[in-house]
């Protein structure tokens, strides 16, 4: 464990808590992409299948359980409890355009052709593009609530911090996982446009609006 990975995990946990708070406090999931949240739940489900069989540490097990529970909890809030506030008209990104190529790629490019490894690879590739429906939805509505922009900033920061973690582990532990690094870089690059808007607007106290 290193400071980059720890702060990355905390940023990830913070993002998930911010989203749950937003939905619970405003009793609305307006502006939140249910498709992205479905894909995040799929990411955690396919990545943490070894939760029972492969004990790493109490921290690892606890965080995995929190991530799985919170991602399904978010789906429950969005599609059941506050379903009436789900903005399906603006959440129109075609998930199959992401899931199918990612599934194909995980069969072609992986470290080991075994079920667990292919599912892990699928979850890594899927996570790198899972935010696209959310970013697409913001581009369609042209704005995002401030709390939702904080959620996205924390979520984008988590994988950026993981990149620093991989640099650290490469130099100090000789650890290197090309699949995770490449996918993590793609994932972080997808946030650049949002990061620019967030830093130039939200940090000045303005609402996050996209230039018309």
């Amino acid at each position: 464990m290193n400071v980059f990975r720890l702060t990355g995990d905390i940023a990830h946990l913070l993002a998930i808590i911010l989203l749950l708070m937003k939905i619970w406090k405003t009793r609305s999931c307006a502006g939140v992409s249910g498709k992205s949240q479905m894909m995040f739940a799929l990411v955690f489900t396919t990545r943490y299948l070894d939760l029972i069989t492969n004990f790493i540490s109490l921290y690892n097990t606890t965080m995995k359980m929190i991530f799985i529970a919170s991602s399904y909890g978010t789906l429950y809030l969005m599609f059941l409890k506050f379903r009436a506030t789900y903005d399906s008209n603006h959440d129109t990104f075609r998930m199959e355009f992401l899931v199918v190529p990612v599934a194909g790629l995980s069969f072609l490019v992986n470290h080991d052709f075994s079920p667990l490894e292919i599912l892990w690879t699928f979850s890594i590739y899927l996570e790198s593009v899972a935010i696209l429906p959310q970013l697409f939805m913001i581009s369609k509505t042209g704005e995002a609530e401030t709390i939702t922009s904080h959620y996205l900033f924390a979520l984008g920061s988590y994988r950026a911090l993981y990149i620093l973690n991989w640099v650290y582990r490469f130099y100090f532990e000789g650890f290197f996982d090309l699949i995770a690094v490449v996918a993590g870089c793609v994932q972080t690059v997808l946030y650049c446009d949002f990061f620019y808007l967030y830093i130039t607007k939200v940090w000045k106290g303005k609402k996050l609006t996209l230039p018309a």
Binding site: H12, I56, F176, D177
Partner: peptide, 10 residues
């Protein structure tokens, strides 16, 4: 080359 470590990352 990826050091065969357990998948210890989240």
């Amino acid at each position: 080359k990826k050091k065969k470590g357990k998948k210890d990352e989240l």
